[in-house]
Nucleic acid binder design. Sequence first.
DNA 1: CACTGATCCTTGATTAACTCAAGCAACGGG
DNA 2: CCCGTTGCTTGAGTTAATCAAGGATCAGTG
Lengths: 140, 140
Amino acid sequence: MALPSGPVTASSDAEAALFDLVDVYDRAYEAAAAELSLSPAQACVLGRLDERRGMGALAEELGCDASNITQIVVRLEALGLVTREPNPRDRRARLVARTPRGDEIYHRFAAAFTFARSAVGRLTPQEQDQLTALLRKALG
Amino acid sequence: MALPSGPVTASSDAEAALFDLVDVYDRAYEAAAAELSLSPAQACVLGRLDERRGMGALAEELGCDASNITQIVVRLEALGLVTREPNPRDRRARLVARTPRGDEIYHRFAAAFTFARSAVGRLTPQEQDQLTALLRKALG
DNA sequence: CACTGATCCTTGATTAACTCAAGCAACGGG
DNA sequence: CCCGTTGCTTGAGTTAATCAAGGATCAGTG
């Protein structure tokens, strides 16, 4: 289990609530991945492959070094969850795509990660809209 | 940079907003730690040492194996940020405490981690209360 | 007091994530 | 046909995390 991000001593209830949310969210994500024997990073990459895409695009979107993506994709490939096809338009590049098994595992992961769904589900539709608006405003 | 926790394809705006919040929060935490040449895990442990405490208490609070804490604390000790004193009441146990330098570094970290503070600061006091209530309800 | 089992922590081994530096191959403009 | 750039991989090194095993100490019991 990754150590939580915080808390820095919260100076308000709202900050403390934010921290709790982040902590529970992250732990739930990790637990859902673990149910399918995935690391959080593997689940994350798998989740970005609804469309096939290049290694570089993944690295940029995820804000990490390309070599990190290489490593994670190699492991996903070894698990039979993705393929790396040559890109016909550019022979330097490779297109990563989920296999049928990758699709299945990912869907099961998405089903197992109930936290965000059920958290939102505890709110009325109005409250959901309120929350969305408040978070968007807070995010600036 | 740790890969983000999600998104699982969000089925509502509220879920997407939750994900965005968690992502930005985690990245900000990591960036603040990096400013002080700390890993997120080191910052996390340092933040739990306002009072001196045992290794086991840290492991339990953080939900990880004791040997993980040993490792992190050893590095913090090598950096001169914490000490491991013998526990006079139990010679098996050791009490971890921040050094003055650990205090200083941690306070600088807390100052650098502005995300939660400034996010909440973008809201009026009423909105802050609303947000807190909504998050608490969503957390169940 | 001596035993016994539990507790506290460390060590060692292993895996994964992440970063950086270096390199290869292919692209594309002159 | 160069040559700089781009896309990705490889290699080396650090950290985090887990598990298994072990040493030392404690605490209760006979």
